[in-house]
């Protein structure tokens, strides 16, 4: 009997800059899971996700996305993956619809289908009044929403988000969270880094804590509490305790 592949399987992933940024990291994310990757600044979260998304070449290790070796066949892996960075990278001179049209074209989505999806996505993110306005005057939150819509327009099976809620107001953040949860319910896998621990606490099925490029804790909120030995602890307290322990050990 063959087991269903994981949405993401990372083995021995290593990246050094002037010091090790990611240190022989092993990470598994299941299909249809909302996984939150937490860690202090410089812990290696973004480097890890950039390697998974194919933006950085690892020094060692393997990355498998839904059974596809992402280092061996990056094009096939990218076809089913979406990446949203903390700094929304969109084109100032394009309108949101034009941007989504471009993204859909890059992923080879049928235009008759992508146009409808694009409009629905932008409307659901509250951008209906700005569909044909160039993005140059948009606030950071609006740009982030356009970037997110771009990531979703080609219906990816794995969505990787690096701090997607940075700069969003409460209402926009709720829109984004709702959209992501909807995708997870539809079977999509979401991996997200965040410094807003409350979001991880509420939304994530499982949480991974990374420090100095290594995974120092992983599990559901309940499992993490169990590991920590206190059932009434908040994620914030656990996170600080874990990171402090790791820093002291280093």
């Amino acid at each position: 009997m063959t087991s269903e592949p994981s949405a993401l399987a990372v083995r021995g992933l290593t990246k050094r800059f002037d010091r090790p940024a990611v240190d022989a990291l092993d990470l598994t994310v299941r299909i249809g899971e909302f996984y939150a990757l937490l860690g202090p600044n410089g812990a290696g979260k973004t480097t890890t996700l950039r390697m998974v998304a194919g933006l950085l070449k690892p020094d060692a290790g393997s990355v498998s996305i839904l059974g596809i070796d992402a280092l061996d066949d990056p094009v096939a892996a990218k076809q089913i993956t979406a990446w949203v960075s903390d700094e929304p990278m969109i084109y100032d001179k394009l309108t949101p619809l034009e941007y989504l049209e471009f993204v859909a074209g890059l992923w080879g989505v049928d235009p008759s289908q992508s146009e409808m999806t694009a409009r629905d996505l932008l409307v659901s993110l509250g951008l209906e009044r700005h569909l044909n306005e160039r993005c140059e005057g948009f606030s950071k939150g609006m740009r982030q929403k356009v970037a997110l819509a771009g990531a979703l327009v080609h219906d990816p099976r794995l969505i990787i988000l690096d701090e997607p809620l940075t700069g969003l107001d409460a209402l926009s953040a709720r829109h984004v969270k709702g959209l992501l949860q909807e995708r997870v319910r539809a079977g999509c896998t979401v991996i997200m880094t965040t410094h807003i621990l409350e979001v991880a606490e509420r939304m994530a099925d499982r949480i991974g804590v990374i420090a100095a490029g290594r995974l120092i804790a992983e599990g559901t909120l309940a499992e993490l509490r169990q590991q920590n030995g206190r059932n009434d602890t908040s994620l914030e307290d656990m996170f600080i305790a874990l990171v402090d322990t790791e820093a002291a050990a280093a």
Partner: peptide
């Protein structure tokens, strides 16, 4: 800056390199 508006029109089809070329031309023009 007054938000410049683009025309609303149907999405165009074509290959991936075509999408890239279309984007480049549009950005160059603007």
């Amino acid at each position: 800056a007054v938000a410049a508006r683009g025309r609303s029109r149907a999405f165009r089809g074509g290959s991936r390199p075509q999408a890239l070329r279309w984007k480049e031309f549009l950005l160059l023009r603007r």
